[in-house]
Structure formats: structure tokens, C-alpha cells
Amino acid sequence: MNPDVAADLKDLSATLAGVEAVMDLEKLRADVAELEEQAGLPDLWDDQERAQQVTSQLAYKQSDLRKVTELRQRIEDLEVLYELAEEEGDDSSVEEADAERAKLREQISSLEVRTLLSGEYDEREALVTVRAEAGGVDAADFAEMLMRMYLRWAERHGYPTDVYDTSYAEEAGIKSATFRVRSPFAYGTLSVEQGTHRLVRISPFDNQGRRQTSFAGVEVVPVVEQSDHVEIDEKDLRVDVYRSSGPGGQGVNTTDSAVRITHIPTGIVVSCQNERSQLQNKATAMGVLQAKLLERKRQEERAKMDALKGDSGSSWGNQMRSYVLHPYQMVKDLRTEHEVGNPGNVLDGEIDDFLEAGIRWRRQSAAEAS
């Protein structure tokens, strides 16, 4: 076998071995067996929330186990393919093996990034809020573009999403929207998207066709679980009910079922209008409020630790990415320096490279700070 190819295959095998060690395949197999046992219990669906948790965890862990075992098998098969191709002097088989090696490298690298998600809440599902910031109607339009980008990303990966609330702007776009991404590690993965996103383009809303810069903010928090303790006093809440509405104020519900909750001490406001009943909307909105209060508590604790360490805190939560559509085409992450020249694809949900670069950058920054 070509020495360079042999060295590369050895390197791929070693990288995968590192991933296997972090994922702890023995424990993963035991977890799958235990969850399969729980999923087979006849009374599982008596508690629907618990049942959904068990079945989704089982599907996710089975997928992880299948992924890593398939990658190991493909490396072994690839070694055989190279040897056979060289013995027979078959150039087309060598090309096929080279293409498979490139695919393997990409997929192992992607799985390796997942092993970097070891934060306290990284395994959780994510609650994402997108808000229009400076830039008027262009900012509202940009906020809707970002929301679609994340929903398309989730769709590409087969992750279910629930849109809890969308506040439409008068002319176009949205003022804000909150949605949930139902996948393990969604929080750890998407948390690197938090911050201010900037769009530069010829405004479709400007009669004179001038270039416009607009901004939208992204907030990502982990979904709360039963084990989380978030104290909320009912006296601290103001609950308003109203009719759900669609774009342009069009009524989509004839009853006052939408719920807006204001947490008076912090000023945090959450809404939900996607459920059928006022009771369901209130329960969902309370879940979002708990998640935001939990995140606020974490940030306060982090700020205290940073102050004790004499650290000014990380700056990655501010302006973090530019999307330029005019006078040239580019999307650039200002923290990682990762950039691409196809904003159309990025805005259609192709953001995995940005996510991976962000996760690696955050891990490196944390290592340098410690």
C-alpha cells in the first residue's frame, strides 16, 4: 500500500479510537440494553413525557453506537479495498477508495467535534430565540431569515422542532421567535450561535436600492429538566392572555388562548401561542421561562467566577458573524475566522462547518483561559 495512504489510514484509525474512548462504547452498549428494556415495559406510555424521553434517548444512543461501529468497519474495509486495487492495478478502484477515505475523514472529524461537548448542559435539547435588532424592517426580515436557517438545519439532520411563539413585524419579517430543537446535544451544538449576527445587502425595502446593514440577535438556552431547581414565585409573574395571530395581524385563533408571561423581578418576557388551549400554552411558556431563568443563574455564577479569576469574561457572545450579500458574497465568523463564499447555502441551513469551528474555538479558548 502507498506509504502516505497507509499513514493516513493509521491516523484515521487513531482518531476514531480516541472518539470510541470518549464515547465509552461498553457503557453505550449497556445504556442501549437498559433503555431497550425500559422501552419494552407494558406501562411505559402511562407517563407520556417519560416514554418520549426513553424512546428518544434510545433512538439517539442506538444511532451513536451504529455510527461509530460502522465507521470502524469502513476503515477496515477500506484497507482491504486499497490492497486489492493495488494488486490488480485498478485505477478506478483506487479513485473510489480515495473518495471513501475523504468521506471517512469528514465523518470522523464531525463525530470528534461531538466529543468536545462536555459542558454541564451540553447534552440537553435547545431553546432558541431570534430577535430583530438595529436596522428596522431589514432587521425584522433578517431575523426571519435566521430563524428559517436554523429550522432548515434541524430539518436536514432530522431533528424535530416546535415553534412556541412568533411575533410578526408589521411590514415584513419577525420581531422575535422562540423555538425548541428536540435532539440530544442540540444545546451544546447551537450554543456557539449565541450573539449578534450582521447582514449587509442591497435593501429590498429601499426604493433607492441602497446598501443596508442590519442586525439580529440569537439566544440559546438549555431546556430544563425535572432535576433542575428553578424557584419561581407566582407573585412575581404577570400573565396576559391574547388571541394568536399570523403575519400582518391575521387572526389564526378565535379564542384568547395565547399566553404571555412577564417575570417582574428580571423583566424576562416569554410567550406561547402554538398549543390549542390556554392551559397548554401557559405550561409551555413556564418551561421557556424556567430555561431562561436557569441560564441567567448560570451566567451570574460564571460572572462571579470570572471576577474571582480576574477574568473579564468571554467576548464570543457579542457580534459573531457577518453575512455579506453585496458588494460581494461571503459569510464570515468573526471569532473563528471561518468563512465561505456561498451565503445562499448557509442561509438554507448549511451551517455545520460554522458550528464545528465554533465548538473547537470555544474548547481552545477555555483551555487557554484555564
Score class of each variant (00 low, 15 high):
residue 107 Q to I: 09
residue 359 I to L: 06
residue 282 K to A: 03
residue 292 K to E: 07
residue 125 E to T: 10
residue 57 Q to C: 03
residue 117 L to A: 03
residue 311 D to L: 15
residue 262 T to C: 03
residue 107 Q to K: 10
residue 284 T to S: 11
residue 212 Q to G: 02
residue 171 E to M: 13
residue 278 Q to M: 13
residue 77 D to K: 10
residue 31 D to W: 01
residue 12 L to D: 06
residue 215 F to K: 05
residue 300 E to A: 12
residue 107 Q to P: 06
residue 331 V to R: 01
residue 247 P to R: 12
residue 328 Y to W: 08
residue 144 E to L: 13
residue 189 T to W: 07
residue 96 E to T: 12
residue 203 S to L: 01
residue 365 S to R: 14
residue 253 N to K: 15
residue 183 S to R: 12
residue 324 V to R: 04
residue 303 A to S: 14
residue 298 R to N: 13
residue 163 V to G: 04
residue 246 G to H: 06
residue 241 V to K: 11
residue 196 T to K: 04
residue 305 M to Q: 15
residue 30 A to K: 09
residue 269 V to S: 02
residue 152 R to D: 11
residue 332 K to F: 10
residue 354 F to I: 05
residue 141 D to Q: 05
residue 172 A to Y: 02
residue 356 E to S: 08
residue 73 Q to S: 15
residue 101 R to M: 15
residue 120 E to N: 09
residue 277 S to F: 11
residue 131 R to N: 15
residue 292 K to C: 07
residue 237 L to R: 03
residue 38 Q to E: 13
residue 71 L to Y: 09
residue 138 D to E: 08
residue 349 G to A: 05
residue 283 A to N: 09
residue 3 P to Q: 07
residue 50 R to Y: 14
residue 205 F to G: 05
residue 38 Q to F: 04
residue 196 T to S: 13
residue 300 E to Q: 14
residue 281 N to Q: 07
residue 231 E to K: 09
residue 245 S to W: 02
residue 21 A to H: 06
residue 47 D to F: 03
residue 363 R to E: 12
residue 238 R to N: 04
residue 141 D to C: 01
residue 12 L to C: 08
residue 255 T to E: 13
residue 149 M to S: 04
residue 292 K to I: 07
residue 75 I to F: 03
residue 90 D to F: 11
residue 267 G to C: 06
residue 86 E to W: 09
residue 20 E to Q: 14
residue 12 L to F: 01
residue 367 A to S: 13
residue 339 E to M: 11
residue 64 D to E: 15
residue 62 Q to M: 04
residue 180 R to S: 14
residue 174 I to F: 04
residue 153 W to D: 04
residue 148 R to M: 04
